[in-house]
Amino acid sequence: MFTGQWSPPGVCCDTYMSSGLCFFIRLNTHERMGTMGKVVVKPEVCIGCHLCEVWCAVAHSKSKNIIKAFLYEDTKPLPRITVEENLPLTFAWQCRHCQEPNCVTACISGALTKNPVSGHVEHDSLKCVGCYSCVLICPYGCILIDEQKREIIKCDLCAGLETKYCVSHCPNEALIYVEN
């Protein structure tokens, strides 16, 4: 529908806008080789509200109820997505589900695996020992630490849930799930 340019050249945040766009196109072509899908962000419309984080935490809470999760559940709900923020630039960022994921190679316990069917990089928290090798090696900084449980958490694309919470709750549709 919309074919216009996202941002006028010369606006102070235009460089990331235009290059951001081409960045996602590149990822798309790359993905055709292996992964089935991932969440991509349009930084030029990411408003830095952090609602993706909030809802990601809800998605990974026990009750899936936002108020219960944050106010009444024992374990503090944690997001698997990070909003990088250096105003005016903000963008939400989570596991890229790499084709050849470094985290999987670094995992000493076999907790991280690349699902050959879905292409998702999956994390088995039962196997994770919290050595944080993956934290050190993930070039995107997408593996986060649950300090309480001393293990890592990462985007599982809301496995088992009806929607990808970050995508469906983004008020500005800055997050999009792309499939090949």
């Binding site: 919309f2 216009g4 996202w6 606006v11 102070c12 945040c13 349009k42 030029e44 419309v45 990411c46 408003i47 830095g48 105003l87 005016p88 903000t90 500005n172 549709e173 800055a174």
Partner: peptide, 9 residues
């Protein structure tokens, strides 16, 4: 530049 992003064209 932070506020204008709130409109996703």
């Amino acid at each position: 530049p932070f506020l204008i992003k709130r409109l996703n064209p």
